[in-house]
Design a protein around this nucleic acid. Structure first.
Lengths: 351, 351
DNA sequence: GTCGACGATGATAGCGGTTACATTCGATCG
DNA sequence: CGATCGAATGTAACCGCTATCATCGTCGAC
């Protein structure tokens, strides 16, 4: 399926080096016949500069197609128009939506997102925090409220506004925006009870690394028992949660526990695998078996039957963060707080 | 579903400002009893510094837990350990995988990814390019080979290595890493022919913005006709491609053209919607209807029947880019080239 | 008419590193 | 034994912009 022209390095690159040095603010100043201080002001606080001078400066900027060197500006002002965001996975669509919402909520303000992937590892997170702080970002957004000691020290030690997201805590470092992961498990257990389930099952993943998923599991198990179920039957996927693994794990689960009639899957992708597997096995959903996912990814509504799931405020988290950051950066709202954005159990055909 | 403690801003933030200023290189130098030049060298080219001095410096760094201010370094050296990446969507899992692979391939080298979202808009891309170049990144990775005039000018004018990805071109600005979008359409049309399809259909999306998807469509239509099909029946989704919209668009398509017996969907998410819709309508797949997606997202293999699709080198693209960049940044491989990573038609039950 | 206030602009000292160049000092060599 | 050289280190001039403070009119008030 490869084109013949694909041989490495054969094609000449289009670009030729022009050699024209990037214009500096001093060039603009010279052309406009003013000092660099005035140019700087005209660019960042135009209202402080008289209209005529401003006009000349704008013309010069245009003429040279001048673009300020952000690093110089950041260095001199000790803050950069950058926002660091650390997420545990880039592939997980949840965080991507939040990322996009943060970006959208900050749109136009000229912020750049510096993105780091912690791969669900606390040490990795610590390293990322350190290197992001070295850029003096305007703010730092991290996923979760659990951090290594070193990370904690760094976070407490800096003046950069910190936002912890996708989880709640009683002791935010600064600001937390999220929802209770544990309550999701609670809600689903109750929902299964309502629907008349008799024996519960759980398909999890990455229990050793994704402690947020673990909190959901804990809520599910504890509530299940407290409302009269036996401890749910359980299987853990090896590795990342995918539909294929979900299908297989689900098959294992019901092979070992044929009495299970309601399964909570750690997320929708896994649940989709289970749904197809049930279909293959001829178990009717929801009569013989109820399936619930977590996330409300777009396909959940398109499934047959529709997949019941828990809708997470992934977009709302991002927008809220953007809102908080705008306030923080503008200097209002000096201190943080905890923002619980809740979640919603979406009842569809699969339960 | 909200916890009571969720009232905004009620919780006190954990952090108290310590007031300790971040140590500077001069502090390290003083403690180690050397000049800042030596500290700088010890940090970036340790082999130039004698072992004893290096030891003292490392001790001082450790003691102060010193972290260099990257902006200062970047300003002075006119290059930053940053790699700008512009993608058309953060939600699309394709690009996320590539992003992760770029990151992974560059792991340990201490690069930060500066990520921009162009929302499939060329003007947006132009703005992003400008603001990313203002950070003097070590390289800039952009999606696609089509750019606005202004963007082109900026890209040709800079010395920053540029990589265009997810598409091929005869005239790369510098380096291109991707595959032929058009050939995907060609391959699927032929595949449908092989499988004995008689009337083709196409479910597309964003034909006005995603010109890569348009290239796939063009390949499909042209080939279809050249190998004896009538022009495929076609429906375009309004807005972003989701499963729900895919299901609806597919329903429309076959309502209008009941003779269609093979449908190419612009991506797997849409194809999944079509698959479920076919199931709801009682059309058996693949006998009555063949469905093919694009992307080979993880659930494609878990579907019932398995979803035939086109596997894109999303991870390979990222790894290749990382490889090229390592070379470029190290100063070897001064010029670019075109790298065709191909794609693979994955035949599963749905065709 | 003089003074102070105020608005607009300029001069300039950093911001915290990097790096070209100078300096030092022992080892090597004729 | 002095000249030479190279490794190790220091000196200081930037990098390009920001921000403080000084300067200079201009204008209204007393």
């Amino acid at each position: 399926m490869k084109a013949e022209k694909g041989a490495d390095g054969t094609k000449p690159a289009l670009r030729e080096r022009h050699g024209t040095a990037r214009p500096r603010m001093a060039d603009v100043a010279r052309i406009a016949g003013v000092s660099t201080a005035t140019v700087s002001r005209a660019l960042r606080q135009p209202e402080l500069v008289s209209p005529q001078v401003r006009g000349k400066i704008e013309a010069a900027v245009e003429h040279l197609s001048y673009r300020p060197n952000l690093m110089a500006g950041a260095l001199a002002s000790a803050r950069s128009k950058t926002i660091g965001v650390i997420i545990p996975s880039m592939i997980n669509a949840f965080f991507s939506v939040t990322l996009e919402a943060i970006e959208e909520g900050l749109a136009g303000a000229g912020y750049q997102l510096l993105i780091g992937n912690s791969h669900y590892e606390l040490e990795s997170e610590e390293r990322l925090i350190a290197s992001m702080l070295a850029w003096s970002p305007a703010a730092l957004v991290i996923t979760g409220c659990r951090h290594s000691r070193g990370a904690m020290r760094a976070l407490l030690d800096t003046d950069v506004p910190i936002v912890e997201m996708w989880e709640l805590t009683d002791n935010p470092i600064d600001t937390a925006v999220g929802f209770s992961q544990r309550d999701i498990g609670v809600a689903v257990a109750r929902h299964f009870k309502e629907r008349g389930a008799r024996r519960l099952g759980f398909v999890g993943a990455m229990h050793q690394r994704d402690y947020r998923a673990d909190a959901r599991r804990a809520g599910f198990f504890e509530t299940a028992q407290s409302i009269g179920f036996e401890p749910p039957a359980e299987v853990q996927l090896p590795g990342l949660p995918t539909s294929v693994r979900g299908a297989k794990a689900f098959a294992e689960l019901i092979a070992g526990h044929p009495d299970v009639d309601a399964v909570l899957c750690t997320n929708d992708v896994v649940a989709l695998g289970a749904l197809f597997e049930a279909q293959r096995l001829g178990w009717s959903v929801p009569d013989r078996l109820k399936i619930c996912g977590v996330g409300d990814v777009d396909f959940a509504a398109a499934c047959e039957p529709g997949l019941s799931t828990v809708s997470l405020p992934r977009r709302a988290i991002g927008l809220k963060i953007a809102e908080v950051l705008r306030e923080r950066i503008a200097g209002r709202l000096p201190t943080g707080g905890v923002h619980d954005l809740g979640f919603e159990l979406v009842r569809r055909g699969s339960t």
